[in-house]
């Protein structure tokens, strides 16, 4: 994890006739419901602070109406905030004029959409090259680079097809290739996999993780699906009614939910798949010398096989090679049962 790529400072968004006036009322204590009833303004986001680091997948998760799609559209200014600052590499993007903003969108951030939003009248390769042609890259060069991205997402051979001829999963690969083609440092993915059926969706999640490992992009990923958030996110921000409830890694959030809402939210998650051995190793306990060894960043689920094989305890080895402690079946069960 590197430096901060995108920094969001106190961003608020009010929809209505007089956003600034309404925001002032919110700051002086009026809540969302009263704001709606009395002034007919909608509080979309309230005082959001976030830091997204270079090279991570940052998941913003929330149910519909939580403001997550509004928030992600602030990162490339498709929506302007009512208040607050947004820094990209330390640069205030709200200060950009129209021309600068265009260049920023062409080169620095790319976006993938829930319903793909491909250009139906253009072929796959024209779609993938779209961002480059907007930036004035000559057609042969744009098509060459688009071709590379098409190969990367496994769509070689479909260059001259039209989007409507492709399945949903393939269309979203075109969407992904289009976003990758401009070589932007940041990918904004707005519920990018939500419209796909479960198997394809899982394939795409795996492909995204694999691409991320290879290309090291910074990815902001929006989802309403907690499993997807936990699978993909290095950090997860949970959003409700336009406010941030908790930001942390998946296992941090599972281990210590910040409030009732988050707790209820994470209740049904398969904790074995998310919680890591390191967090639950008992440092005061020493496993037998011949006990199986497991890595601290392995999931609790991965201990099941060893216990099933008859081991009474597992030695947990930290990333630096030290044995951090031991795990017993009882400890694992406690972690899973959340006592």
């Amino acid at each position: 994890m590197g430096l901060v790529k995108i920094r969001v400072e106190g961003v608020s968004k009010v929809f209505g006739r007089d956003p600034a006036g309404a925001l002032a009322k919110v700051r002086s204590g009026m809540d969302k419901t009263r704001l709606k009833d009395e002034t007919d303004h909608v509080l979309g986001l309230h005082d959001i602070d976030l830091s997204i680091r270079t090279g991570e997948i940052f998941v913003i998760m929330g149910l519909s109406g939580s403001g997550k799609s509004t928030l992600i559209r602030h990162f490339n200014r498709l929506i302007e905030p009512t208040g607050g600052r947004i820094l990209f590499d330390g640069d205030d993007i709200l200060a950009y004029d129209a021309a600068r903003l265009q260049t920023f969108r062409r080169r620095k951030v790319a976006m993938v959409f829930q319903r793909f939003a491909l250009l139906p009248h253009k072929t796959v390769i024209e779609n993938v090259a779209y961002g480059l042609t907007l930036d004035g890259v000559a057609k042969p060069e744009a098509f060459r680079r688009a071709g590379e991205q098409i190969a990367l997402v496994g769509l070689t051979g479909f260059e001259t097809s039209y989007p409507a001829q492709l399945s949903g999963g393939m269309q979203q690969r075109v969407g992904l290739a289009r976003a990758l083609a401009t070589d932007a440092e940041v990918l904004l993915m707005d519920e990018a996999f939500s419209a796909l059926d479960p198997l394809i969706r899982h394939d795409m999640q795996m492909q995204l993780k694999e691409l991320q490992g290879r290309l090291g992009k910074t990815i902001v990923f929006i989802t309403h699906d907690l499993d997807e958030a936990l699978l993909l996110g290095d950090h997860i921000a949970i959003l409700k009614d336009g406010t941030l409830r908790q930001v942390g890694t998946g296992s941090e959030i599972l281990a210590a939910p910040a409030d009732d809402y988050v707790a209820r939210f994470v209740r049904d998650v398969n904790r074995g798949r998310i919680l890591l051995c390191g967090a639950f190793a008992d440092a005061g306990l020493i496993a037998a010398a011949d006990a199986p060894v497991i890595a601290a960043d392995a999931t609790l689920e991965s201990t099941f096989a060893a216990f099933a094989g008859g081991a009474a305890a597992l030695a947990v080895r930290d990333w630096d090679g030290r044995i951090a402690g031991a795990l017993t079946p009882r400890r694992v069960m406690e972690a899973l049962a959340r006592i």
């Binding site: 062409r106 951030v109 250009l119 779209y130």
Partner: peptide
């Protein structure tokens, strides 16, 4: 959504119109 996508990729108003 398609218009928004073209904006997100940095289309100027004129490019949005013609592409």
């Amino acid at each position: 959504e398609i218009v928004e996508a073209s904006r997100a990729f940095g289309a100027s108003p004129r490019q949005q119109l013609w592409t």
